[in-house]
């Protein structure tokens, strides 16, 4: 099929103009978390969900709240605790004494932007309820099935510091997140700005700059972003290197990886690369796009062995070794 990349490029340039406005609007409130904002946009455009890992106080809640305000979408926050029940997340049927019948009470998941705070504090049944909703994009309460509104973006957070009394997400569940973003402390200059902003009497007001319909249209445009066969091959090489490192001249990684990335990994890597190209206002994917998202896409999809843990080798170290060995097209 002959693809007119020039026309696609022009279209993407035109349609991605809102990205700059949206980023500017978010930067009014969020300072020094460029990577997190980019990841949120990738999740938003790629119809995926994001797992955020970072110590408390890094503006995770603020970021998704700001995004929902800028996109004119609804926002809800669920604080996951050990006594949380699935009905607290998805909703339940409540008896109405006046009408003498059961009524459906929708849970906080019925929103465009959902923040699942400290997801690993809730037991497995609650995590499953949320993750199933994330996958199926529909909720069944009683006999009624509800389709979740579009866009539907879940940003779940995990606290890496406290491990006691937590229920770590199983590999199969983690795999459903498009990206796992690890956020770090802001730089000194950025933190100074944050401090000044807070002391001067709060944040600037966030204005809605884009509608939900525009986001849905942008998603269609993302799918049109051209990905050359060479880029596809590059993505597959990276994914296969996580599975069979010895075939990619990385025999030392063989004992460090217990399982490699799943096909969902290659799908999400390609999708995220396209989204990144769109954010960069390009109608085609280049290896830089793949490089920009590969760590966040694969970080939670590579299982490491006890040997790796003993040697303090993380999945990010493995990804770095792989991208430094796999030839760029």
């Amino acid at each position: 099929m002959d693809v007119d990349v020039r026309a696609i490029n022009e279209k993407i340039e035109r349609e991605s103009a809102f990205i700059d406005i949206l980023t500017l609007e978010m930067n009014k409130v969020i300072v020094g978390q460029k990577q997190m904002i980019e990841s949120l946009l990738i999740g938003l455009l790629g119809n995926g969900h994001i797992l955020l890992e970072g110590v408390p106080g890094l503006a995770k809640t603020l970021a998704i709240n700001t995004l929902s305000k800028a996109v004119q979408g609804s926002f809800s926050r669920v604080q996951f605790t050990p006594d949380l029940l699935p009905a607290d997340v998805v909703g339940t049927m409540i008896y109405n004494m006046q009408k003498n019948s059961f009524e459906i009470k929708k849970g906080p998941i019925f929103a465009n932007f959902v923040l699942a705070d400290e997801i690993n504090r809730a037991p497995a049944k609650v995590q499953s309820a949320l993750l199933e909703a994330m996958q199926e994009r529909q909720i069944t309460i009683g006999d009624t099935t509800f389709k979740l509104d579009e866009p539907f973006l879940v940003m779940a957070t995990q606290n890496p510091v406290e491990q006691e009394g937590t229920y770590p997400l199983p590999e199969a569940q983690v795999d459903r997140f498009m990206l796992k973003v690890v956020i770090d402390y802001p730089r000194l200059q950025d933190e100074q700005v944050i401090m000044r902003q807070n002391l001067s009497g709060g944040f600037s007001k966030v204005n809605p700059v884009i509608s939900v319909a525009q986001i849905i249209q942008a998603r269609e445009s993302v799918n049109e972003v051209y990905m050359d066969e060479k880029i596809e091959k590059y993505i597959l090489d990276i994914i296969f290197a996580t599975r069979y490192p010895e075939k990619y001249n990385l025999p030392n990684l063989k004992d460090l990886i217990s399982f490699g990335a799943s096909p969902r990994g290659s799908i999400n890597l390609a999708k995220a690369a396209k989204c990144y190209a769109f954010i960069k206002r390009r109608g085609y994917v280049i290896p830089e796009d793949v490089r920009a998202v590969v760590t966040d896409v694969l970080r939670h999809r590579i299982g490491i062995t006890y040997e790796a843990e003993a040697e303090n080798v993380t999945s990010v170290d493995i990804i770095n070794s792989i991208i430094n060995e796999v030839e760029v097209p």
Partner: peptide, 9 residues
């Protein structure tokens, strides 16, 4: 070269 390789230029 990137344009030629990845964007059909």
């Amino acid at each position: 070269a990137d344009l030629v390789k990845f964007a059909k230029s």
